[in-house]
Design a protein around this nucleic acid. Sequence first.
RNA 1: GGUUCCAUAGCUCAACUGGAUAGAGCAACUGCCUUCUAAGCAGUAGGUCGCAGGUUCGAGUCCUGCUGGAAUCACCA
Length: 596
Amino acid sequence: MKLINILKSELADTFQKLFGHTLQATDLNLLPTRKEFEGDYTFVTFPVARYTKKSPEESAQLLGKAITETSEIVESYNVVKGFLNLKINIKAWLETFETIYQNELFGQLAGKGKKVIIEYSSPNTNKPLHLGHLRNNFLGYSVSLIQQAAGYDVHKVNLVNDRGIHICKSMLAYEKFGNGETPESAGIKGDHLIGKYYVRFDQEYKKEIALMQDDGMDKEKAEKEALLMKQAQKMLQAWEQGDTAVVDLWKKMNAWVYEGFDQTYARMGVSFDKTYHESNTYLLGKTLVEEGLGKALFYKKEDGSVWVDLSDEGLDEKLLLRSDGTSVYMTQDLGTAELKYKDFHYDKSVYVVGNEQDYHFEVLFKILKKLNRPYAEGLFHLSYGMVDLPSGKMKSREGTVVDADDLMDEMAETAKKHTQELGKIDGFDEEQAGLLYETLALGALKYFLLKVDPKKRMLFNPEESIQFHGNTGPFIQYTHARIAAIIRKAEQLGIDYKSFDIHVLGKTHETVRQLIYMLDDYDRLIGEAAESFSPAIIAQYVYDLSKEFNRFYTEEPILKEEDINYLKFKVAFSSQVALTIKHAMGLLGISVPDRM
RNA sequence: GGUUCCAUAGCUCAACUGGAUAGAGCAACUGCCUUCUAAGCAGUAGGUCGCAGGUUCGAGUCCUGCUGGAAUCACCA
């Protein structure tokens, strides 16, 4: 049993004996003792003073005295106001360490028997991935791993937005201005090529609007009447009707995009168990709309468009099908939700999508509830904040979008520069070096994006992101590499460090206690990170752990230790920290090198 | 305008979900490499937690109002 749980139960027993009242679990809240006081766990007696009929301070004194006398694990106590600080003896801490050290499933919580689907990435096939997608992908992937570690049966899903008016824009521009260009002939990745034509559409469209405005038309009308837009809409209708030429072009261009995406995904280190295409789900969405119409949950306007009225629930009316019969975003999402449930029969379905779509998902979930879907209660929108640049919001039209491929290139370049300046990898061949740069680059980038609470809007400062000092991915990777070096050396020296004996250890370094506390706390944090869908909790943890270990590392020479048993312990102890760093970073989708 | 979210050190972020004297990193300054990897460690300095009330033994955290910012309210996705 974990120390904190033993302590809680002892506390409850002691309290019962002293005051004749049984504390509820919620009253048994133990906090870590603040640094400036002596102790490991703190029990706050203010809330329970009403059961003791004594002052909080006196209650704390009585409790502390009694528990210290009877407990096998409490060494001493002190009371500051109503705060009872309890110090656990080192023996109990070391035994805790031994349990952790021998636990091969450390960092894996017991199975919960629940299935969770996590949908993330969800790119549009009309442009390459950018910085915003990086946050999404890293977040979705990491959340999946964390859910898994917390005991859920996780399936990662990608929903590719491969149809709709935006795709038609790229297609139209390509048809008009492409001259048969291909990724090979242009020498650029397929997703970038398609993105080029999406931008081209926008440019030509703007030109046309400007001309129409010159002729005296107002802007709003021009936007609707522009020939290019009409052609794009027509193309969408043709696509939905299965027009062979349109569908063939669509297939060809999408294939290029997928090839580009696959490369980018591989480099990012993310993956999916299943990929859905909206081109395959929108029809199912239409049947759901029909169903709703049949049950009079939705209604049809004179022009043939279909709507749902959610004004009773404080929302607006929402379009579900256009008057020309083509489907909209919502239609597709209805179909996809249905299909995902058919495929997985999940308990929970998580959508990793930016908070700009809060309203959309609120509506989507309400509609599915209206349709009385069995899975409606398990739907969850993991709404994350946008990524801003120092210059403000990313805007594709102003060319301020940070491209994902470019960014990863730059990070790798920076990693190379830093590493070469430090000159630490003399024995590396070119392949090993390249691998290390990639590990550091992605580590820096992922950590930078994941250390912030997902819900919050964050600032991406390019200069800060390429920093390798302080609270960064490479700092943590470095901590791991240093421990790995010690273990290598210990093994070279033939030290059988696994055979340490905690019962004959003398005095240990003061950081040991704190570090074991942290190791012991790891599974709790995994649970919390899973609960709140926040990799930031893991990031914060692994940073704190590394920071604390670095103090141990500097202040307590490991291999120079003369007491062979303590030496063994220190190596084993360090290896456990390294393992935990590796595991925690793994949950962030970040790998750690053994040398850097 | 309606709805939702945000505001903590010069900058970027924490604060164990209501607990003690609000913590890290960056930037600035001072020490520590005859080395288990200095991509590190230790220290100094930096705060009316946007403002004003309220609830509570206790509020950065909960409630109300105000100020400032963001998102959204499309026959875009």
